[in-house]
Design a protein around this nucleic acid. Structure first.
Lengths: 149, 149
DNA sequence: CCTTGACCTTCCCATGATGGGAAGACCGAT
DNA sequence: ATCGGTCTTCCCATCATGGGAAGGTCAAGG
């Protein structure tokens, strides 16, 4: 199977398959004489595994660990569970951060007339030094970056 | 005020202040003879506005629009509200995506013994072609990227 | 046999917002 | 004058992904 077929069969783009190979997430594919990559059913299986893990928001690094555990018949399910739960924590933290922003904005927007006049509590909040009791040190709430695919 | 002081006063790093200038989000700062950037109270005000907008998750592009509206005394609050509500929609969509992932993983993890044995529903779900009725076209759920700061 | 179109290869660049760091100039205080 | 802190610009890295160019390959049909 060529890379395009593998891509269609797994939902992982050819570009990404090559990328995963380049960073060592998957082993180097066998090549035809002409240099075309060739994929077996087993490779396709692995790629599907990877895609599902990506769909659950795991980073490539985490996926590497998961693939390793998947292959390891002697794995402890505790290791898998730990990775999963760490990810759950990260996901929920990020979701909460987004919802906090959303909530704030919805409240502000609810107070905004939304007409032709310029008065707007949203702009005022952004501009306002309003009651900024010690907002200063601005310890920026630390969350990791997230790419929601 | 030099860039370092402006950074401390606003919670926007000097690096980012230069970056915002380079992409035109803020006008080019006045320079001292030696080339040092100089910031007025008004500039600091703008930077604080920008930081608050970033804290609410607005993109730099949206912030550009918001700053424009802020400066525009003849603005229609409807324009501000529209930008805010579009952002709310995006935020909630992303939060929902994260929570869906989290929920799935939590369910799987709840069924995982988490002991020394290898059996693990998490790994099985990732590996399993399980009941994939037409998962095929893999229309990847389209969300934008998000950087939760 | 040759063309055509679909596919493959590698390589480079871009995204978005941010940080890291180097090399060199400058400023203020001792 | 010297030292520590600060400024300048420039380049590179992140993370996962896509775009596109330039060129090689393959299969089908003329």
């Amino acid at each position: 199977m060529n890379i395009g077929q593998a891509a269609k069969a797994t939902g992982v783009s050819a570009k990404m398959i090559r990328y995963y190979e380049s960073i060592g997430l998957i082993p180097k594919a066998l090549r035809s004489e002409a240099g075309y990559r060739h994929y077996s059913e087993s490779d396709v299986h692995t790629l599907r595994f990877i895609r599902r893990a990506r769909d659950l928001g795991f980073s490539v690094e985490q996926i590497g660990e998961l693939v390793g555990l998947w292959r390891d018949r002697g794995r402890a399910s505790a290791d898998v569970k730990r990775i999963a739960l760490e990810h759950v924590v990260a996901l929920e933290r990020k979701a909460a951060a987004l919802q906090a922003m959303s909530r704030t904005l919805r409240h502000l927007a609810a107070c905004c007339q939304g007409d032709k006049r310029p008065d707007c509590p949203i702009i005022e909040e952004l501009a306002a030094p309003g009651a900024d009791g010690g907002e200063h040190p601005h310890e920026p709430p630390r969350f990791g970056a997230l790419h929601v695919p």
